[in-house]
Computed example of a mutant assay.
Amino acid sequence: MTPKTISFRTDSETHRELEVLAQLRDVTASDAIRLAIHEAYVREQYRQAAAELAEWRNDPAYHQELAEAQADMDDLRAW
């Protein structure tokens, strides 16, 4: 895949933060931006997974299915 060049305007605070972040990580500004985007993406994946887990925890049908599976496992242990 050919890298796509993206330009954006920073305000003075964002520019300073980008420079500090790049320096702290010993990377270029472009690398710092790529890392920040990747980290935000990963955080979003975890946020979505946590939200899905919360839905399951609050779903009576999920708890019923879980109880049935546990009962099946208990039956298998009896053998």
Results as ranks from 00 to 15, higher is better:
Glu65Arg: 15
Leu35Met: 11
Tyr46His: 10
Val20Arg: 13
Ser7Phe: 02
Asp11Glu: 05
Asp75Lys: 15
Glu55Asn: 11
Met1Thr: 02
Asp59Glu: 00
Arg25Leu: 08
Ala69Trp: 13
Gln70Phe: 10
Arg43Ser: 08
Tyr41Asn: 04
Ala51Thr: 12
Ala69Tyr: 07
Ala61Glu: 05
Ala71Lys: 01
Trp56Met: 09
Ala51Leu: 11
Gln64Thr: 12
Ala54Gly: 04
Thr10Ser: 12
Ser12Cys: 06
Pro60Val: 01
Asp75Cys: 13
Pro3Ala: 03
Asp72Gly: 09
Glu55Ser: 11
Arg43Val: 04
Asp75His: 15
Ser12Asn: 08
Tyr62Ile: 04
Asp75Arg: 15
Arg47Met: 05
Arg43Gln: 09
His15Phe: 10
Gln48Asn: 03
Asp11Met: 03
Arg57Gly: 06
Ala61Leu: 10
Trp79Gln: 13
Arg47Val: 02
Glu68Gln: 14
Asp31Glu: 13
Thr5Ala: 02
Leu76Tyr: 04
Gln45Asp: 02
Gln45Trp: 08
Thr2Gly: 03
Arg34His: 01
Thr14Asp: 12
Asp31Asn: 10
Ala61His: 11
Thr10Asp: 09
Leu21Arg: 12
Arg9Cys: 13
Glu39Thr: 10
Gln64Gly: 04
Val42Thr: 04
Leu53Ser: 07
Glu19Tyr: 08
Ala36Asn: 07
Asp72Arg: 14
Thr5Trp: 04
Leu53Asn: 07
Ala69Thr: 00
Val27Asn: 11
Ser12Tyr: 09
Leu24Trp: 09
